[in-house]
Design a protein around this nucleic acid. Structure first.
Lengths: 169, 169
DNA sequence: TATTGTTATACTCTATAACTATA
DNA sequence: TATAGTTATAGAGTATAACAATA
């Protein structure tokens, strides 16, 4: 007996129960997106968390490790290894904080800016040509605005991205 | 020197860069929702994955472990422990497959149905009173429909929920 | 006394491979 | 030869606690 004999793909009765609930749809899509974006970034040898960090440094260069960790919603312990990786690849570097000798500030290097440009193109391509290809421009704007309000109400203001961390799926 | 001296909360320049991109918003919200729903379910001593499984069995009782694993997008190895837990708590039970002696079918027990009812109320309360409280009824429908189309285009049809598995955040 | 960066440790999730009993 | 369930193992990822240097 094979699997097809047992599962005629017809037990789909009320299963759509959850499928029309935004809370469920959002959780499902969020996980899917993280996995897909991770795959798209793989050729650059970076993970979404590196993308997040490079993007943050582009807009706010010279933050301390703690500040970066807070913005990205990750622990400062993890930050250590993250900065280590970027530094080892010449994408960013640590400098002593000008007035607080306990702290390091993190700065983007030219190689980091260039890598971010490539990652940005990958992100845009994924979003426009793959994820949202089925929506019109107006619909994309409507979606973005609704999501913005939901995210704001949830306290997810600013550019923080706890979703892009961790392992996909 | 204190943290506030260094971070006047003003380095928010172009950081909204990603914040208006649906791909990013969805990933961010998905992660947030998983964490919140996990917290809401904690009093019932179950995780979102148990909720998913109970919900699936309600609509399609008697699936084999493999079939459940496929629907929920988890590995069959993990399925073993999951069924073990539900069985130990009297929420579901294994029965020998009527014709394939290698397989077990999984069936919901009364205690499982009751627990699912409670979990359903928690889910609805979270979605309506917390997550989507800021949207009107019409806006919620618009959001659900846009998400449905994006999910369908991504191949996330049916009631599968890879997003509710794993650890939150 | 609190904070920054760091390291060590344990705990959870997940991914792979192998085993058994069946088909 | 392939499949269902199971188990063991190793690998990520994360969370906690502690430490030295500095505030």
């Amino acid at each position: 007996m094979t699997k097809a004999d047992r599962s005629p793909a017809d037990h789909d009765g009320g299963r759509a129960r959850l499928a029309s609930h935004p809370a469920f749809q959002l959780a499902q899509l969020g996980s899917h997106i993280k996995g897909r974006f991770t795959a798209h970034l793989a050729p650059l040898n970076i993970a979404p968390r590196h993308f997040d960090m490079l993007a943050l440094l582009t807009d706010a260069d010279g933050l301390t490790q703690q500040q970066i960790a807070e913005e990205l919603n990750i622990h400062r312990n993890v930050m250590v290894g993250l900065v280590d990786e970027l530094e080892a690849r010449g994408l960013a570097e640590r400098r002593r904080h000008p007035t607080d000798r306990r702290a390091y500030t993190v700065h983007l290097l030219p190689a980091g800016r260039e890598l971010l440009r490539k990652a940005d193109r990958i992100f845009d391509g994924f979003e426009n040509d793959e994820l949202l290809a089925t929506l019109t421009t107006a619909e994309r704007q409507t979606l973005a605005e609704l999501l913005r309000r939901v995210a704001a109400a949830a306290g997810l203001h600013r550019g923080v991205h706890p979703a892009f961390h961790g392992s996909p799926e």
